[in-house]
Simulated scan of single mutants.
Amino acid sequence: MSAFPGDDPEYVSRRAAAFGAEAAAYADQRPGYPQEAVTWALAEAPGRRVLDLGAGTGKLTGLLPGEVVAVEPDPGMLAELRRLLPGARALAGSAEAIPLPGGSVDAIVAGQAMHWFDQDASLPELARVLVPGGTLAGLWNLDDDRVDWLRELKEMTGNTASYLNDRPVPMLTDGRYFTQPVRAEFANPQPRTIDSMLATIQTHSQILVLPEDERSELMTKARAFLESTPETRNGAFLRPMITVGLRVTRLPDGEAPRP
């Protein structure tokens, strides 16, 4: 998974597979997406057929307009999506093997998911199911680690998904099938308490794969930090987050990439 340069592929695979066992906690604790970010992601789509790819528990699925199909590879996450959104069309599948016909969607969106895709295998699949002129958009909720206390907490817990250390997603700059990306940002602050902040941290993949004793020790350390930090120690507080969007357009078949 080249969106994680330098990381051991086996470790990345274990992290990617860790979410299903905690699907209910993921649904409860992970942030949603600002409606303006969803509107921006689909602003140039040529039609209303939308694929939510790597849909997880449906955090994004329920916000999407039009004819929506959700595709998710993890059985636990897919089951939680179907429980929470019983009316949604939700299919088992992955970015590397999308269970839809060619040219069947006008837009593909991926919330907090595209960095997990196998970049080489998924790129032609995305292009296959998307109509020429269609939209591919990724949305990521990132901690605003320009804020000192949040940056320190993230370093403590090993969370590398950050605003200051945003990693590229190679498929979005590949140039063979899509235009170069347009970027946008949206404020997405999340109300938290110490308990809910710790619960959220425990849904992150680098925490999920830790042995139980290490996880417990780290959470004790994180609680002590939050209880001693002025911004977080007195009840409710805001976790500063930014939703970052990247959007590209599917090139017409046979057209050379634009500069």
Rank of each mutant, 00 (worst) to 15 (best):
G134S: 15
V182E: 13
A236S: 14
L130M: 15
P211I: 04
G93M: 10
W116Y: 12
L198S: 05
D74H: 04
R223F: 05
G32K: 03
T135Y: 00
V131G: 11
S13F: 09
L100P: 05
G93Q: 04
R247V: 00
D52S: 11
A127N: 10
V109W: 00
F178N: 05
V69I: 12
T229R: 06
P34V: 04
D8Y: 04
T243W: 00
A43P: 01
L64D: 02
L130Y: 14
S196P: 07
K59W: 01
D166A: 10
S196Y: 09
D7T: 07
E10Y: 07
L123D: 06
A224N: 08
V131I: 15
T61S: 11
W40E: 00
V169M: 14
P99V: 15
T220G: 14
M219A: 06
A110D: 01
S205R: 02
P9S: 10
P211V: 02
L210N: 04
I201K: 02
D8C: 05
T200H: 13
L126E: 10
A161H: 03
P86D: 11
L51V: 03
A17G: 03
L172I: 09
A110V: 00
L91D: 10
N234R: 09
A110I: 00
R183E: 13
V248T: 01
V68N: 02
G235N: 07
F237D: 02
A23C: 10
D74I: 01
A37N: 01
Q190I: 13
G254M: 03
A43H: 01
E255I: 03
A137F: 09
T193A: 12
M219Y: 02
A25Q: 09
T200K: 13
V109S: 00
F19N: 00
P257N: 06
P132A: 15
D120W: 15
L123T: 10
P170T: 12
L42Q: 04
L218I: 07
R151K: 14
E125N: 15
P86E: 11
T57M: 03
V50Q: 03
P259H: 13
E185I: 13
D144S: 14
E212H: 08
I194W: 02
R215V: 07
P259F: 09
T160I: 15
G54Q: 03
W116T: 08
Q202G: 04
A113G: 08
V244N: 01
E212K: 13
T203C: 09
T229C: 12
R128V: 12
R258T: 09
L91W: 12
L208M: 08
W40F: 06
D148T: 15
G103V: 08
G47H: 06
W149T: 05
A95P: 10
K154F: 11
P75S: 14
T157P: 02
R258A: 06
I194E: 08
P191R: 12
L78W: 15
D106K: 00
A37K: 01
D148V: 15
L42A: 05
G235Y: 11
D74W: 01
Y163I: 06
G58W: 03
G175K: 06
T173A: 13
A17R: 05
A161R: 04
Q119V: 12
L164A: 13
G245I: 00
T200Q: 13
T203L: 05
V68H: 01
D52R: 06
L251R: 04
N234P: 02
R167G: 05
K154S: 14
R258S: 08
A25E: 14
G111S: 10
G175A: 12
P170H: 12
T173M: 10
A21F: 12
T160F: 15
